[in-house]
Amino acid sequence: MLVELRADERAVVNLGGIRKDVSIELVPEAQVGDYVIVHVGHAIGMIDPEEAERTLALFGEMAEAAAAAGAAA
């Protein structure tokens, strides 16, 4: 998660407690609070929280469907 914007298109990200200085030149729109994907010291993309929830919900449906199938069998 991006925790601090710095000069020269750089930012500090917090990776599970580890703070790291990365470049945000490739995602100049990134703001504090955004989740960025970091590759070789550069943020290359951002996580869309709504899409992440949607994917997790898909897994959830899967789990229910599997449970239902298991109960039917």
């Binding site: 995602v27 996580i47 869309d48 992440a52």
Partner: peptide, 10 residues
């Protein structure tokens, strides 16, 4: 991987 990928990319 729609939470990070779209059709056009970066």
């Amino acid at each position: 991987f729609s939470r990070a990928v779209d059709r056009d990319g970066n």
